[in-house]
């Protein structure tokens, strides 16, 4: 076990443990969307979990705990990056909280509250995808205007089934999560596995009508 200093709290953790997970487990919240507990290779895509180490903002999920590490979670550089990343995500997110199944359980709402910012991407143009719903998967629907592309669904599917039936598709700004079945795969039928639906921080994935969980 080693000791690290996060803001003014001394925390004990195992040497080499993931910094983000260590903070979260010790009740220090750091905004994050894409981190999966105990993941060997953190995805590091959402760019929200910034902390400051040695005067530089770094993504906490990519850092390992070591003796004497000093971490600051609330510096102006950290907050500035977090707020920009958050605003960027909101600029492609359909804000219809009242109609949204994730209302009050949504990680975006939690982060907004934590960062003390609204759910409008101040100063940025809002650009939604049209159509927003992707039904390329045999029994799942992905709402592209809710999805934050954290990739958790792809990771859990891969972990569980050794092969992911959801994948990143297209490039750049157009990147989406979409169903992907190899042409010679046997037709995929619903087995009752809803890991991807359950893990989604914004409830962007749902079962198609008529498919019962």
């Amino acid at each position: 076990m080693v000791q690290i200093l996060v803001d003014n709290n001394i925390i004990e953790a195992e040497n080499g443990a993931n910094l983000l997970q260590t903070c979260l487990e010790n009740g220090i919240y750091i905004p994050n969307l894409c981190y999966l507990n105990d993941s060997q290779e953190p995805f590091a895509a959402c760019r929200l979990c910034f902390v400051e180490i040695d005067g530089h903002p770094v993504a906490a999920c990519t850092q390992k705990v070591s003796e004497g590490l000093q971490v600051q979670t609330d510096t102006s550089a950290v907050r500035s990056l977090q707020k920009t990343a958050f605003r960027l995500l909101l600029s492609v997110h359909e804000i219809k909280c009242k109609e949204c199944s994730a209302n009050k359980r949504c990680d975006l709402q939690r982060i907004a509250k934590f960062l003390k910012v609204g759910l409008k991407p101040k100063g940025l143009e809002i650009r939604l995808k049209d159509p927003g719903l992707d039904s390329g998967h045999p029994y799942l629907i992905v709402d592209q205007n809710r999805c934050v592309l954290c990739g958790k669904c792809v990771q859990v599917c891969l972990q569980k089934h050794g092969h992911s039936y959801l994948t990143f598709a297209k490039r750049g700004f157009d990147t989406v999560i979409s169903g992907y079945i190899e042409p010679d795969d046997i037709p995929l039928t619903f087995s009752g596995c809803t890991l991807c639906i359950d893990i989604c921080p914004v409830m962007a994935i749902s079962l198609k009508e008529g498919i019962k969980s």
Partner: peptide
Amino acid sequence: TQKESCGKCTFCRIGTWHLLS
């Protein structure tokens, strides 16, 4: 760069699009 971004991380995927816009 906006077109060639892999789309993984927030800044590059959405940020470069806003710059371009």
